[in-house]
Amino acid sequence: MIEIAESRPAATTTEAAAGRARVPYALVLTLLGIAVVVTATAGIAIGSVRLPFGEVWGILLHRIFPALVEPTWTPVRETIVMDVRVPRVLLCGVVGAGLSVCGMALQALVRNPLADPMLLGVSSGATVGAVLVMVLNVSLLGAFSLPLAAFGGALAALLLVYFLASAKGRMTTMRLVLSGVATGEVLSAVASYLIITSGDPRKAESALRWMLGGLAGTTWDLLWIPAGAVLAGTAVLLGVSRPLNLLLAGEEAAAALGLNVHRFRAALFVLIALMIGAIVAVSGSIGFVGLMMPHVVRLLVGADHRRALPAVALLGAAFLIAADLAARSVTAPEEIPIGILTALVGGPFFLWLMRRKAAR
């Protein structure tokens, strides 16, 4: 059970949080940007067919500026880079950035450092939608059947959580968290039941692997919807950085400074749920990314969301690209679901964070 954090003193202001930054902000962004470029290059170059880093960049530059680089590679290698690996690496970056940004915003909204983007039950709703498509073999919309079903399940879960959490037109964080956890557990049980009763081992295995998270088979067509959702959502969150910062000082202090806390929270919960739904629809359920990355970034640049949101997006992108590279390299040619690796890293991190919070 996630415990709602106690109100912090009003002295916990944005300026104080920014003052605790241990590394110059420009240097942090530069290093994180380099990390994204390096991990992305490695993700494109390393695979069943290994490519030199220089050749990878040559292919990319030739596709963007044909006259700048003379092609010395085979058409097969260019196809591997542009049609197989680049979309997957870009989607990894989008999913990692989106989960991390949502995690940071959600931790501010519920004022709890242990909150995770999967808290609202949206991931479980998306899982039920995707499993239904796999088990019933629905293909009315071709390749878009699964992501659209997952997105529809996410929206249905969001509506259910809001219905359960609302009372007399108002909603408290405690009711929202409890409703999200309960709804998520029920929907997870429904997805498991559908898999067990499917009667087809191949469908059951496919659904189970999707539930564990993975980005295999990514195409350019599947990239644009989550990319647009993450970019638009992150822009909105950057625009409301000041209200998010006010919540760090406590609900009473934020309300005294003119923030309608309940309305602001409701709007932001809808935004975050829509972002998570778009992400989970194409990647499956990937946990702990939104829990870990915000804490690492706060140690580097402080808690001011104007500074922290761009940094956490870059760190999340680099982390998930690296995790995906490990998932398809550790047991090659077999591929480990990426959700397993993030859980192996995130589980110990969660326990360390919980003990650190208890010690304080």
Rank of each mutant, 00 (worst) to 15 (best):
F269T: 10
F269D: 07
V270A: 01
V270H: 06
I272V: 07
A273D: 00
A273K: 06
L274T: 11
L274A: 08
L274P: 13
M275P: 07
I276G: 00
G277A: 05
G277W: 11
I279F: 08
V282T: 14
V282A: 15
V282W: 15
S283R: 01
G284N: 10
S285G: 13
S285K: 13
I286Q: 08
G287S: 01
G287Q: 00
V289R: 00
G290S: 10
G290R: 09
M292Y: 06
M292T: 06
M292H: 00
M293P: 11
M293D: 14
P294I: 04
L299Y: 09
L300Q: 06
V301P: 06
V301E: 07
G302D: 09
G302H: 10
D304P: 02
D304S: 03
H305K: 01
H305M: 06
H305R: 01
A308V: 00
V312S: 08
V312K: 00
A313C: 07
A313G: 10
L315G: 06
A318E: 14
F319Q: 09
F319G: 03
F319A: 14
F319S: 02
L320H: 14
I321T: 06
A322I: 05
A322P: 08
D324H: 04
L325W: 07
L325I: 04
A326D: 01
A327D: 09
R328K: 11
S329H: 10
S329G: 06
V330L: 15
V330T: 15
V330H: 12
A332N: 02
A332Y: 10
A332G: 02
P333D: 06
P333G: 12
E334T: 14
E334V: 11
